[in-house]
Amino acid sequence: MNDTIRSILKEHGRLAVDVGAIADDADLYQAGMTSHASVNLMLALEGAFDVEFPDRMLRRRVFESISSIRAAIEELTGGA
């Protein structure tokens, strides 16, 4: 799942650094992801994983690292 997240991040995150060099728990906002980019990332993740983030997950910290994104998606897909 992390690979899929990374490839979506590469396309939509507009990071200032190479996604391949980012640790799973690295802060994506620190790596240059803007608010607008996080929105595009959210929408692309919803499409790729066929989920819809509920309002309670529309939080800055949910999208702040690859690990936090993975945790949110796992919760929505029942840990699949």
């Binding site: 608010s35 607008h36 996080s38 959210m42 819809e52 529309l58 939080r59 800055r60």
Partner: peptide, 14 residues
Amino acid sequence: GRAGKLLAVNQRDQ
């Protein structure tokens, strides 16, 4: 929209 919710949260949280 829903994307806007995340933008609003970002604006407020920061």
